[in-house]
Simulated assay, not measured.
Amino acid sequence: MYSKEEVSKQKQAFWTAFGRYMKPVLSADGEIISWSNYKTGIPGIFFKLDAENRYVCISILITQADPQLHAAFYECFEMQKKMLENALGETDWEWEQDITDDYGKNISRIGKRVDGISILRTEDWPALISFLKERIVALDEYWSTAKYAFEALL
């Protein structure tokens, strides 16, 4: 069992390693980017990377407070589903509309999760990094053209 401090240090070490690994990778637009804190440029849309004790996941989160805009964002993702799947090379992402997050806030989430992998085991880090890198780079490729449809909704 790990103490909270040990878990915190291990997570910090992982995200530092991930950041260093991803630093030379440019965005689809050829720009330097912070991959672990990806900025979509659209308020209420986030790409979230998460690695925990028992799983790793990557998600598109819609947290827009305005219900009409929130719904419009989700609809826009639905309309672009084939484009997103083509960029990802995967069709097995989970789509969840109007769910409640850990803080009681209404969100929508499109994501992929793999269980049985741990940020606390350094031997799992290559698999974690590979999972996250492949998908965040693909999301960035998708977003480089898809974001304009979302901008038009603002």
Results as ranks from 00 to 15, higher is better:
A72D: 13
E94K: 06
E90D: 11
E5P: 00
G111C: 05
W15Y: 13
S36V: 03
Q80S: 14
E134L: 05
D115G: 12
G104P: 11
S27R: 04
Y142F: 15
D92Y: 07
E123I: 11
F131P: 01
F14K: 12
L84K: 07
T145C: 10
A71D: 14
V137Y: 01
A149M: 13
E85V: 00
F77P: 00
L154Y: 14
Y103H: 13
G89E: 10
E94S: 06
I33V: 15
V56Q: 02
T91G: 15
E31Y: 10
L49D: 10
L84P: 05
I110Q: 14
T145Y: 09
W95C: 04
D29S: 14
W143F: 03
E6Y: 02
I136V: 14
D98M: 01
S36T: 08
A17P: 07
Y38D: 15
K23Q: 15
E5S: 15
N37S: 14
M83F: 06
G89F: 09
F150T: 02
Y103C: 02
I62A: 04
D66N: 11
G104V: 11
D66K: 04
I99Q: 05
Y21G: 01
L139H: 10
I58G: 05
I32W: 00
F18R: 11
A71E: 15
A17T: 13
D140K: 02
K11A: 14
S3L: 06
W93G: 00
I136L: 03
K9G: 00
L139Q: 03
K39S: 14
E134R: 06
Y55C: 11
I136R: 02
E52D: 15
W125G: 00
L128I: 15
D124H: 10
D115E: 15
E5C: 06
W95Y: 09
K23I: 08
I117K: 00
D66P: 05
D140L: 04
H70Y: 09
W125F: 07
Y103R: 07
N86I: 05
A17H: 12
P24T: 05
E31H: 13
P43F: 10
M83L: 07
E134T: 11
E78W: 14
L139T: 08
L84N: 08
Y2Q: 08
K112R: 14
M1P: 12
W93M: 01
M83R: 09
I42A: 11
T16F: 09
R121F: 13
L26C: 12
G30P: 10
M1N: 13
V7G: 00
W125P: 04
G116L: 04
T63R: 06
L128H: 03
